[in-house]
C-alpha cells in the first residue's frame, strides 16, 4: 500500500528582517505524502521555491524528534498545530485533509521578536534561566549521589516539570504572552528536589525579576499554555512557583 498524497494550500508569514513589516504569502503544494512531517512539508515547499528562484521560507528546526525545542510556529491559530502534546516536527500530515488551508505564523510576542519568516529570537528564555534557573553545584563539589534520598513521588514530579523543552509555545499561546509555564516548570523542578532548597527562594525572586525585565506579560491563569505545551506540562507547576514567590515575600 502506498502512502496517500494530498494537496495543501499554505498561507505563510514572510518577513525578511526584524524591521520588515512582513506579510502573508500563499502557496499551493501538491503531492504531500500524509506520512510526511510538517517540517518535511516545509522542506518540500522550499525545494520548490528554490527551483523557482524564490528564497526559501526560513524556519527553525533541529532534532526533528520533538525534544530540542527548536521548531515551532502557529498553525491555524494553534501553537505547534492542532495535535495535542506534539511539536511541529512530529506533526504528520495525515492529520490534514486534501485541499486544507494552513495559516502558518511565527510565535508572536514582544519578548520573542521575529528574526525572519518563522524564525524568532528566544534568547529571553535563556536570560531567564541564567538569572537563576539552576542549582549552583560547582564541578567537583558533589557528595555521593545516594547520600540524599529523594521521594520517588517528588522525583517524578520534578521530572514532569523538567521535561520542558523551552520551545516557547506557552508564550506564543498565552493571551498575555507570559512565559510563566516555562519559568514555573524550572522553579518547580528545582524546588521539589532537596538539592534545590538552599537557593529556592532567591531563585524565584531572581527569575521572576528577569521575566519582568523582558517584554513578557503576566500570567492571568487562563491555562492556554498547558493546552499548547507539547510536553503537557501542568499549570500546577506555575502554582508551585507562585507558592515559592509568596514564601519569598513573607520571608522578605
Amino acid at each position: 500500500m502506498m502512502s496517500k498524497k494530498i494537496t495543501l494550500n499554505f498561507k505563510i508569514w514572510r518577513q525578511s528582517s526584524p524591521e520588515d513589516k512582513g506579510k502573508f504569502k500563499e502557496y499551493q503544494l501538491e503531492d504531500v505524502s500524509v506520512s510526511m512531517s510538517f517540517l518535511e512539508t516545509l522542506d518540500l515547499l522550499n525545494e520548490k521555491l528554490v527551483a523557482q528562484n524564490e528564497e526559501p521560507v526560513a524556519f527553525d528546526h533541529d532534532c526533528r524528534e520533538g525534544i530540542c525545542g527548536m521548531c515551532g510556529a502557529m498553525v491555524n491559530g494553534e501553537a505547534h498545530g492542532p495535535l495535542k502534546d506534539t511539536t511541529l516536527c512530529q506533526l504528520h500530515m495525515r492529520h490534514f485533509k486534501d485541499q486544507d488551508t494552513l495559516v502558518v505564523e511565527p510565535w508572536r510576542s514582544a519578548g520573542m521578536p521575529v528574526v525572519k519568516d518563522l524564525v524568532v529570537d528566544r534568547s529571553a528564555l535563556d536570560r531567564i534561566v541564567s538569572s537563576g534557573g539552576y542549582i549552583s553545584a560547582k564541578t567537583g563539589s558533589a557528595p555521593d549521589a545516594n547520600a540524599t534520598l529523594i521521594d520517588k513521588e517528588k522525583a517524578d514530579l520534578a521530572m514532569d516539570a523538567a521535561s520542558c523543552i523551552g520551545c516557547g509555545a506557552c508564550v506564543a499561546a498565552c493571551p498575555n504572552a507570559s512565559p510563566m509555564l516555562f519559568v514555573g516548570a524550572k522553579i518547580s523542578q528545582l524546588s521539589l528536589l532537596p538539592q534545590g532548597q538552599p537557593e529556592s527562594l532567591q531563585r524565584v525572586e531572581d527569575m521572576l525579576d528577569q521575566v519582568d525585565e523582558e517584554n513578557f506579560g503576566h500570567c492571568s491563569n487562563t491555562y492556554e499554555c498547558e493546552a499548547a505545551c507539547p510536553k503537557s506540562i501542568s499549570v500546577s507547576n506555575i502554582a508551585r512557583a507562585n507558592r515559592q514567590s509568596i514564601l519569598k515575600s513573607l520571608k522578605g
Partner: peptide, 28 residues
Amino acid sequence: FLIIRKRKVRPVKYSVQKSSAQRSFSSR
C-alpha cells in the same frame, strides 16, 4: 496597569488564534 502592559507584549496580533477548549468562558 496589567492591561496596559499587555497591549505592548504582542505588538503584532495573530491573524488566526484559536483558544483551547481548556480556557474557560469566564476567563475570556
